[in-house]
Design a binder for these strands. Structure first.
Length: 572
RNA sequence: CGGGGCAUGGCGCAGUCUGGUAGCGCACCUGCUUUGGGAGCAGGGGGUCGUGGGUUCAAAUCCCGCUGCCCCGACCA
């Protein structure tokens, strides 16, 4: 492609409302343009990248034995009523009616449709296992779309659904998918981890997520350096306390703590370490209008996913707002504590082994010291509701865990019979009996991968595409073509050669000042750059740089460039 | 949905408090000079100041309603 034929608009300034680098760079490099909140147009270069990702995903899905199909984006409400999700899914599901007042939704996922297909198409166990997949636009009316295409409302996803007679067969396909996903992220050139995960709203038993590692990631993952243990913190169990609770040595005592609200403030004020205090969080209970208290050690962080799974606590976890706490307990949230609190106490295991600890006295500006369980407060339940922290023992006993931020780009689930049961998807088994099939489902966020790749591969100047995702692999920059005819003729020859050799080449034949051309080249991030200018062309030579290493230039003979490039470009 | 903020040319902003000619930088167009890291000079085009109402001789500016977007919390590829 010739840049003179493409209206590429890059931005010198960073758009004010773009929070994360990938969003900023995608806008600046002209890959995407926003239409409305969470809705983006994919401009020519952005689309090229997305298609690269799609192609690799498609190739590896095909290699794994999955078969591609395409389902409608718009789905009838009836199917969702059958699965029960029309009621469950909530406002994230975009619903609308057609001219006959029949209800539809724009598909956020396709379990219902594929299960409907399966129950019509699949009659015999001999047809199993099957793994159907599609690459398609989804819509989820996210409460808060943000970070550009990282969390857009409309996005492209590869979703696959497998059908099995039994769980052993599901296990096999699940493992095949895991391997296919590893091949995909390896080929894309991304640094990633796959982790044990919570299966969330989709349901089912076993589930793994694939995360691209990046500091801006919205998820926290923990992994062992000693073993292959890795998990989303959401579901990583915290270690049991090392020592049992010590006997009380102090009496319960009130202290004035004026204007001290947070654990840090109170600890500093009293001169006690945060781990010797307890924090009290008020959340909604399972019964409407009821409240319960979650108690954690002062230096620990609440794990909302684990907490929401506990009986008696509303799921999803819902914090009581400050006004409601004041009204019910007559105390600001900064001065709450378990002693004398008239609510069921769900106490984290490591808070439950404290003795002589510090907590709020349930009156503004007053705390207790020397608090002890049994004597001063009684847990309703002792449970695991905190995050596993960096440096703590790994749940598999292999040593300490490390923690890292990740962007979830893939998720695989063993669904079991949740949908097949509800929608009566059966086949005849070898005994001639009808049997409900077992399902798996496997998602990859195509458009999110594009953003994640930028988060992981950029510098001050702009994007640095991994070879496999680059919109083009080679950029020819023409400098001084208007003054020196040989620049253009040389460039044209090389451009032809590259195209004939199957190298994806972009030629910047715009009559720009060198500074502008280089700045844009850096921003757009094409990996291999060749500068054709009178300066080196006099000796029949060209200048080559890799985007990752702009300081290192190599001079190459013009007539040997093709071979040179072929050696540089790593096949994907 | 709750809380906070913003809305002025394609982008980034000033002007709003204290009502009176709509302004700056970038981008865009023309010409000349320049040409290896986002050029210089000269000229030029483009804005119902988000939107509807109100107050006023007069509204970007003051008042009320609506809409859109961004940020902080619970969701997820």
């Amino acid at each position: 492609m010739r840049l003179s034929r493409l209206p590429l608009t890059t931005l010198k300034e960073t758009p004010a409302d773009a929070e994360v680098v990938s969003h900023q760079l995608m806008l600046r490099a002209g890959l995407i343009r926003m239409l409305a909140a969470g809705l983006y147009s994919w401009m020519p270069f952005g689309l090229k990248v997305a298609r690269k990702v799609e192609t690799i995903v498609r190739e590896e899905m095909d290699r794994s034995g999955a078969v591609e199909l395409l389902m409608p984006a718009v789905q009838p409400a009836e199917l969702w009523h059958e699965s029960g999700r029309w009621e469950q899914y909530g406002p994230e599901l975009l619903r609308f009616a057609d001219r006959h007042e029949r209800e539809f939704c724009f598909g956020p996922t396709h379990e219902e449709v594929i299960t409907d297909i399966a129950r019509r198409e699949l009659k015999s166990y001999r047809q199993l296992p099957v793994n159907y997949y599609q690459i398609q636009t989804k819509f989820r009316d996210e409460i808060r779309p943000r970070f550009g295409v990282m969390r857009a409302r409309e996005f492209v996803m590869k979703d696959a659904y497998s059908f099995h007679l039994d769980s052993a067969s599901l296990d096999e396909t699940y493992e095949e998918m895991r391997l296919a996903y590893c091949r995909i992220f390896d080929r894309l050139g991304l640094e990633y981890r796959y982790v044990r995960a919570d299966s969330g709203a989709i349901g089912g038993a076993l589930s793994h997520e694939f995360h691209v590692l990046a500091d801006s990631g919205e998820d926290e993952i923990v992994y062992s350096e000693q073993s292959d243990y890795a998990a989303n913190v959401e579901q990583a169990p915290a270690p049991a306390p090392e020592s049992p609770r010590a006997e009380p040595t102090q009496e319960l005592q009130e202290v004035d703590t004026p204007d001290q609200r947070t654990i840090e403030e109170v600890s500093e004020f009293l001169g006690t370490p945060p781990k010797q205090s307890v924090k009290t969080l008020i959340v909604e209970g399972e019964e409407d209008g009821s409240l319960v208290a979650l108690i954690l050690r002062g230096d620990h962080r609440l794990n909302a996913v684990k907490a929401a799974k506990i009986e008696g606590i509303r799921s999803p976890l819902c914090f009581a707002d400050e006004a409601k706490v004041r009204e019910k307990l007559d105390c600001p949230v900064g001065s709450l504590g378990p002693a004398g609190l008239d609510l069921p106490l769900y106490v984290d295991a490591s808070a439950a082994v404290l003795s002589d600890f510090v907590c709020g006295a349930n009156r503004e500006g007053v705390h207790y010291i020397g608090v002890n369980w049994g004597r001063d407060a009684d847990p309703e339940q002792v449970c695991d509701i905190r995050n596993l922290e960096d440096g703590e023992p790994s749940p598999d006993g292999s040593g300490p865990v490390r923690s890292a931020r990740g962007i979830e780009v893939g998720h695989i689930f063993q669904l079991g019979d949740k949908y097949s049961q509800a929608m009566n998807c059966t086949v005849l088994n070898p005994d001639g009996k009808e049997q409900v099939v077992t399902m798996g489902c496997y998602g990859i966020g195509i458009t999110r991968i594009v953003a994640a790749a930028i988060e992981q591969n950029h510098d001050e100047q702009g994007i640095i595409w991994p070879d496999a995702m680059a919109p083009f692999s080679v950029l020819l920059c023409l400098i001084g073509a208007d003054r020196d005819g040989t620049v253009r003729t040389t460039a044209e020859t090389l451009y032809q050669q590259c195209q004939e050799a199957g190298i994806e080449v972009l030629m910047d034949d715009r009559d720009l000042r060198p500074g502008v051309m280089f700045a844009e080249a850096d921003l757009v991030g094409i990996p291999h750059r060749v500068v054709i200018s009178p300066r080196t062309l006099e000796q029949g030579r060209l200048e080559y740089r890799h985007r990752r290493n702009l300081d290192e230039a190599e001079e190459v003979a013009a007539d040997g460039l093709l071979e040179f490039l072929q050696a540089k470009i790593t096949p994907s």
